[in-house]
Structures are given as C-alpha cells and as structure tokens.
Design a protein around this nucleic acid. Sequence first.
DNA 1: GAACTGATGTTATTTCGTTCACAATAACGA
DNA 2: TCGTTATTGTGAACGAAATAACATCAGTTC
Lengths: 216, 216
Amino acid sequence: MAMKHDIAQRLSQYRSVLYKLKALGFVRVFSDNLGDALEISPALVRKDFSTFSLTGNKRGGYLIMDLLDKLNRLLGKDKVQRIIIVGCGKIGQALMTYSGFTREGLQVVAGFDSNASVISPQASIPIYDVKELKAYVKREGIRIAIMAVPDNAASHTFDLLRAAEIKGVLNFAPVPLKGVEGCVVRNINIGLELENLFYLVRFSGKLPPQPAGRAA
Amino acid sequence: MAMKHDIAQRLSQYRSVLYKLKALGFVRVFSDNLGDALEISPALVRKDFSTFSLTGNKRGGYLIMDLLDKLNRLLGKDKVQRIIIVGCGKIGQALMTYSGFTREGLQVVAGFDSNASVISPQASIPIYDVKELKAYVKREGIRIAIMAVPDNAASHTFDLLRAAEIKGVLNFAPVPLKGVEGCVVRNINIGLELENLFYLVRFSGKLPPQPAGRAA
DNA sequence: GAACTGATGTTATTTCGTTCACAATAACGA
DNA sequence: TCGTTATTGTGAACGAAATAACATCAGTTC
Ligand SMILES: NC(=O)c1ccc[n+]([C@@H]2O[C@H](COP(=O)([O-])OP(=O)(O)OC[C@H]3O[C@@H](n4cnc5c(N)ncnc54)[C@H](O)[C@@H]3O)[C@@H](O)[C@H]2O)c1
Ligand SMILES: NC(=O)c1ccc[n+]([C@@H]2O[C@H](COP(=O)([O-])OP(=O)(O)OC[C@H]3O[C@@H](n4cnc5c(N)ncnc54)[C@H](O)[C@@H]3O)[C@@H](O)[C@H]2O)c1
C-alpha cells in the first residue's frame, strides 16, 4: 500500500537541477553535487541512479546531457504532457494561465466548469461545460486532471473523472478522496501544510512528544 | 536531518475527521474508525495518540470532544493563527480571499507586494509595500508567511523574510530554498506533483525499477 | 459480583528507506 | 606502461516508522 513517491519526486528534482547546471555550461556532474543540491547524501543519488540503470563513468561522474536524455525518457518528458482542469474558479484560473508549466513540458489543454458564465470554448485554452468532460477525455486521450472545484462538489466531480477513465488526479479540495484502483490521487492541502508549519515552528528545537510519560 | 513531518500532518488529519464525525452527531470514536478514515492501521492511530498522551477509555474508545480539545491545544488552534502573504499576484490573491482558511482557524492578516498598483492598505485585508514587511512582522509578531512571488524574486524575498525573523515559510515558487537554522520552509511545487502523477500513472501496476539487472 | 468482552496502551517485530563501506574501474600522470 | 587517484555501483548495516502482538483494564452480562 505504501507507494514509492519519493524516488520519483527526486527524479524530477535531479532533472531540474541538471537543467540549471547545463545552462551554466557544465558538462559533467558528480553524485556529490546532486546530493548537495537536493540536500541528500551522495550515496542516495547513486542508489537512485542505480535503481533506474542510469549509469555514469567510473571516474568522471555523469554526463549531464546523457542523464537528462534518460531522465526525460523515464519521466515521459519526450512528449508534451497534457492536462485538463476541472473547476475554473480562482485556483483553476490561476493554474490555467500559469506560464511555468510550459517549461516543465506540461500543457493545460482545456478547462471544464458547470457555471455557464465561465464557459468559453473559443478561448486559447477553451473552457467547456463539464458535461462534455467524458467525451473530451476519451477523444483526446487525457490521463491527468487537476480538480479545483468547491469542496462540496469534490466527491461528485471525482466520480465524473473516474467515469471518464482519468488515470490520475491532482486534488485541491481539502477533502480526502479515497484512493481507487486504476486512478491515482494526490492531494494538495494548503491549510494542512500551514498547520504543519505552525506545528514545526512551535516545536522546533524543543521536544514535541513527551516520551510516553512514565509515572514516578 | 530527517524530520518528523508525518505525525504532525496526521494530527491535523485526525482533527479534521473528528470535526466531521462530531458534526454527524457522534460522541465516541475508535482507533479503527480513524484508521479507516486516514487509510492507516488502527495501531498507528493508537501509537500516535500514545506519543502525545492523548488517552481514551479502555473500552469505549475516545471521546471526540475531549480529543478535539487536546488536539486543538497541541496544534495551537486555541487561538487564531495569523499569516501574511508576500506576492499578491494570481496565486497570492486566490489565497488571500480563500474562505476555507477561516474554518481552519487560519487568518490572512495582510499581504505585501512590490507593485504599487497592487498595494491597497485600506482593503479589508490590507496589502502593503513589501518595504514595510519587516516592521509589520515585528510589530504584529507574525511567525508564518506564504511566499508567492515570481521565481526570480524568490531567493531575495526569502532573505527579507529571514531578516524579519519569520519562523516558517510556505513557498510556492518552484525554487528549492535551502533550509536555514531558525526558519522552516515547506515547498508547494505543483509542477513536481503533476510530474509525479504522470510517473505513478505510467508505472502503476508494472514494475518501475529494473531490479538492478543481473547479467545472464 | 464473577466471568467475559472489546478496546486501549505499549512492547516487540517487521519493513523499508537511507547511509556506510568498499571493491571495481576509468582517467590521469609520471 | 604502470601505479595512483577519484568516483562509481552495490551489498551490508543501520535506523526510523509502521505493523503486529498482547497484556491490561473498563464496562457488560448473567
Ligand atoms: N482559492 C484558494 O486559495 C484555495 C486554497 C486552498 C484550497 N482551495 C480549494 O480549491 C477548490 C477551488 O477553490 P476556488 O477558490 O478556486 O473556488 P471557486 O469557487 O473560485 O471556483 C470553483 C469553480 O468550480 C466551478 N464548479 C462548481 N461546481 C462544479 C462542478 N460540479 N463541476 C465543475 N465545476 C464546478 C465553479 O463554477 C467555479 O468556477 C476548493 O475546494 C477550495 O477549497 C482553494
Ligand atoms: N499561478 C500559478 O498557477 C502557479 C502555479 C504554481 C506555482 N506558481 C508560482 O507561484 C509564484 C507566483 O505565481 P503567480 O502566478 O501568482 O505570479 P504573479 O506574477 O501573478 O504574481 C507575483 C506577484 O508578486 C509581486 N512581486 C514581484 N516581485 C516582488 C518582490 N520582490 N516582492 C514582493 N512582491 C513581488 C508581483 O507584483 C505580483 O503581484 C511563482 O513563483 C510561480 O512560479 C504559480
């Protein structure tokens, strides 16, 4: 049940760092460098690479170009990755017009909403009625969706996405969607992150958990 | 170096579930119920509670009210938790007007920006010039900030926040801010989450990592 | 009120991700 | 050419976090 999030996340981070190094004119990189950049041990870098058969040169480290090629293939970055956004409100709109995705090879190809005043099929990134979701997804072969509908619509919208056979959902509603066979869900819960920050700040340094107090 | 994020995150999740159960009229709850809700084992629920001396009744489970009281105290939810937002663009504005924070006891008390046309000190949630950041933070005793400035301003803005002795930052820029003594950073990287989703979807079921291929 | 039941609280065990340690080996210099 | 050196690649060791196991005890029943 416990999935290996972390290594995939690191793969993307390696990729990101490698692009920066390449832009700076570097050709080779060592596991130490990458370890420093991600604040992990060099050993873990090498182990990750080993896991995916990303090989380097026994003395001269890794060739950045070569690594990037392989990582891009591994992460599916050799083609543009298309996504849709369901719920084009404040968050949804912000994401639709976010230019940062392009850099990452991600492309928002359409939005969907239930509010007629938001729908605009002629826009450069069209927004369609959510009723057309299923047909669109099937026709275009979309696999990943961002969900940014109000909390009370989250569960229903998730059902729609599943019916459209969406394979992965990035959910912004603070509603824990139970994971389902055939559809991976990742939740972005900003409130939770903030609470967590408050907690970490409150107890930074001091010992948070009483070590299971033993009565005298 | 490995910090115990996870347990604090679960604490908040317990709290969230408990509120829902309370709203449904429940009075008691068992570790099984909470385990189901968070998709973790009941043993872990009990262990977490034990760690924080959250005790129940040997047979009748836990009293929801009682648990909530203790959790709220533990998470600092007995008072409103004030935050500021630096960078009031698309994401920043969305967060400023987000009503969901109130439910969580979080309050955005001010925004800061460098763009004069955005500044509006008279608004219900005032937006000040970022130059006033340090004075405001010190005067009001703010500890947590959300950072939603453009990528190229992220590092500089982070320095400002540190100079203002902010204790925790929720960073939306896809720029890895190196953690610093005295200031906890948590990064929200939506592009990374999407990449991760694509990865998980690509390899769901199939074995992603070649098990370190042994030559025949 | 004694035996039973069902859930907690805590100790033991397992699992899993990370780090350590080092053998293998390609580049470099003399 | 041959030794030296720097770095990879990976099996073993380690540690933390999750699960399992179980002893303990509050209710409940007869
Ligand atoms: N705004 C924030 O800063 C913020 C922060 C954290 C979490 N969230 C969460 O993100 C989600 C969206 O927030 P928002 O502020 O963008 O809300 P919003 O109200 O601005 O936008 C919601 C959009 O969804 C559309 N919608 C409603 N029902 C729908 C349905 N059944 N199918 C398709 N579209 C539907 C609405 O027409 C609207 O355009 C919410 O769950 C919210 O809790 C928002
Ligand atoms: N918009 C999105 O959907 C989205 C998604 C993921 C990540 N992000 C990241 O979030 C950050 C903000 O994105 P956005 O779309 O809201 O950008 P934006 O350009 O809409 O807003 C940025 C705001 O920051 C202000 N600003 C610029 N320099 C500043 C400084 N030095 N001090 C204070 N304020 C300053 C600008 O005036 C502007 O109001 C970026 O780093 C972006 O990469 C955005």
